[in-house]
Design a protein around this nucleic acid. Structure first.
Length: 618
DNA sequence: GTAGGGTTAG
């Protein structure tokens, strides 16, 4: 075999001494911009014996720094051309390829590993962690198991780095049992192994088990470090267990652990998820350093608590402090906009996305589509959706739900069928949209068929909300008897929203007796809820039974049930204003009410019902 | 030259 690629010793010296054949080669290597140019330089250099190969490795690590391209195939091509490479060179090349953190390159590392085996090379303790890391990046369990077999065969089970990487691989591949097995059978373990073991449980949803393990270990005398605490606290956040969280926080304090940004972020997230936003904010303010993730944690955490306005002000503060938002920030903010109907802020975010060259794809694209749909700008939603190069079930679901709520039933359903044709599997939420479309479009037949398809075709078990959609569909179509029959045949206990649909239909059709029956059920389910009484009262009113309507109102008063004030919001110059019934908080509320009076007068010729008795208005 | 935090849709 000819053509073994390598550098001449002289060309290596080129950079440092004048004793060279071609003084420009080394300089060219350092300044080389393109892979092609670089490759041609390499192939021009002459042969090198493997005794000089450590020097060659140095060159290779230099290569990784001078070539910004993610295309590592040239490194692989160098690798394949070396006849008898030293293991250090292989490891260096592997590390270099792996550093780019993209899937294609991780695959390249595995390929290199296989080729090393074919060449009959003796792998060392540094090779296995690298290959296993590549498997982790790819979630490549099958290949990982083969590597595990080689690890055992070649006697590397005593190496901590190898063992820990093996455990990590099984963890990310969802094999908690294997993580445990490797741990239990390994004669070498350290704090890292223990952290990976706990993380294996936590990452796969066994939060309680992970936390229990932590206490078992610490009660046995183990001293946890910051990294282990981050894993355990994140498990606690998922468990929504405040008491436990406080206990862990105390552990951090009493053991004088370093309150770093990771630990801070984990604590902020935990307090937000456990329902203590005030404590979360205190911890957040106390953090010595914050990064973009700290802000994301705060913003998305507040959003999850439905504190959307507070989340937006956190976002504003973040910008005041000059922290650059990343894609996750924007997704969180867009989510707030969707819920507040804050179209202006949403549009601002869209502009920000465009100006910063952020791809409208994936999470960001989906959040943007959803924002426009929820803020009532369906045309914009469709425009963004149309421009997205790759659409997934979330993108489709957002527009389908959006169209359905905007009353564009046919268009929603057409998109649904288009989605199926492309081969995207719908999920439960997609069907909420599809059934809502049928309900709003009065498409009883199609609704029945699609409901049946859920399980028959897509193997999705209808949840209570789907039954709710069907009851709503039938009720709105005036088929109350069918709706009742549907409710009676439900496999689960109908909830308040389902009875609510029926009750609403009763009001429209003036079915007093059924309404009374349903109200009784509803009061038993949620006696404190105002909506039930109001619907019943309105049902009486709709058939002219005014005294009965009044009776219901009196009953409400007796039981101290107050109508929860409805809330609407409007956004002006990026500020969201909220209004409730009888709300006088706005500095110009006097003007606002005057305008309402005027408008009402204009529209109906009667005076607006300014205070109190709007129980009869749904 | 091993381990860690946050993420969209009804």
């Amino acid at each position: 075999m000819a053509c073994y690629l390598s550098f001449s010793v002289t060309s290596l010296n080129v950079g440092c001494t004048t004793n060279s054949q071609d003084p420009s080669v080394f300089h060219k290597l350092q300044t080389s911009k393109s892979t092609k140019q670089f490759n041609s330089l390499i192939t021009k250099t002459s042969s090198l014996q493997h005794t000089q190969q450590p020097l060659y490795a140095k060159i290779i690590s230099l290569c990784s720094s001078i070539i910004p391209s993610k295309d590592m195939s040239y490194i692989h091509s160098i690798f394949t051309q070396i006849h008898d490479p030293h293991i250090d060179i292989c490891n260096t090349l592997m590390r270099c390829v792996l550093s780019s953190k993209c899937k294609e390159n991780a695959l390249l590392v595995i390929l290199m590993y296989v080729e090393m085996m074919c060449k009959g090379l003796d792998l060392d303790k540094y090779t296995y962690p690298l290959v296993l890391k590549a498997c982790v990046q790819l979630r490549e369990l099958r290949q990982g198991r083969l590597v595990h077999a080689h690890v055992i065969k070649n006697g590397f089970v005593l190496d901590l780095y190898v063992v820990n990487n093996l455990m990590r691989l099984y963890g990310v591949c969802g094999c908690v049992g294997s993580v445990r097995k490797v741990f239990d059978r390994s004669p070498v373990r350290d704090l890292v192994s223990r952290t990976i073991l706990i993380q294996g449980y936590v990452d796969n949803g066994y939060w309680k088990e992970g936390v229990d393990l932590f206490f078992e270990m610490t009660e046995g005398g183990l001293r946890a470090d910051e990294r282990m605490m981050v894993v355990v606290i994140s498990a606690c956040a998922k468990l929504r267990d405040l008491r436990l969280g406080q206990k862990l926080h105390k552990y951090v304090q009493s053991h004088k652990l370093n309150f770093d940004v990771f630990l801070g972020n984990a604590l902020v997230d935990m307090y937000l998820k456990c329902g203590e936003p005030d404590v979360a904010l205190i911890v957040f303010r106390e953090m010595p350093t914050r990064n973009v993730i700290s802000w994301n944690t705060l913003i998305s955490g507040l959003a999850q608590r439905r504190e959307f306005k507070q989340a937006i002000s956190a976002f504003n503060e973040m910008q005041d402090q000059g922290v650059k938002p990343d894609e996750n920030t924007l997704v969180g903010v867009l989510n707030c906009c969707s819920n507040l109907g804050a179209l202006g802020i949403g549009k601002w975010v869209h502009t920000f996305i465009d100006r910063n060259g952020i791809q409208v794809a994936g999470f960001v694209g989906n959040a943007l589509v959803d924002m426009y749909a929820k803020c009532g700008s369906m045309d914009d939603a469709l425009r963004v959706f149309g421009r997205m190069r790759t659409k997934d079930v979330y993108s489709y679901t957002s527009v389908i739900v959006g169209l359905a709520t905007h009353g564009k039933a046919r268009k929603a359903l057409n998109l649904f069928y288009e989605m199926l044709e492309i081969g995207i599997q719908p999920n439960e939420v997609t069907f909420v949209g599809v059934l809502t479309a049928c309900s709003h479009g009065g498409l009883v037949e199609e609704g029945h068929k699609l409901f049946a398809d859920m399980w028959r075709v897509h193997k999705l078990k209808p949840r209570i909300e789907h039954y709710g959609c069907m009851v709503d569909l039938l009720s709105r179509a005036g088929l109350i008897d069918e709706a009742m029959e549907f409710v009676e045949h439900m496999p689960m206990e109908p909830d308040a929203s389902i009875w609510g649909s029926i009750l609403a239909a009763c009001r429209i059709q003036g079915k007093v007796e059924l309404a009374e029956h349903v109200t009784e059920i509803l009061v038993n389910i949620e006696s404190e809820k105002d909506g039930t009484y109001i619907l019943m009262s309105n049902t009486y009113a709709s058939v002219g039974k005014w005294s009965d309507a009044l009776e219901v109102r009196k009953a409400m008063k007796r039981q101290k049930i107050k109508k929860v004030p409805g809330c609407s919001s409007i956004e002006l110059d990026s500020v969201v204003y909220e209004f409730r019934r009888c709300d006088k908080a706005h500095p110009r509320s006097k003007d606002i009410y005057a305008m309402v009076e005027q408008l009402t007068l204009h529209l109906t010729g009667t005076e607006a019902l300014s205070n109190g008795s709007d129980y009869f208005i749904v």
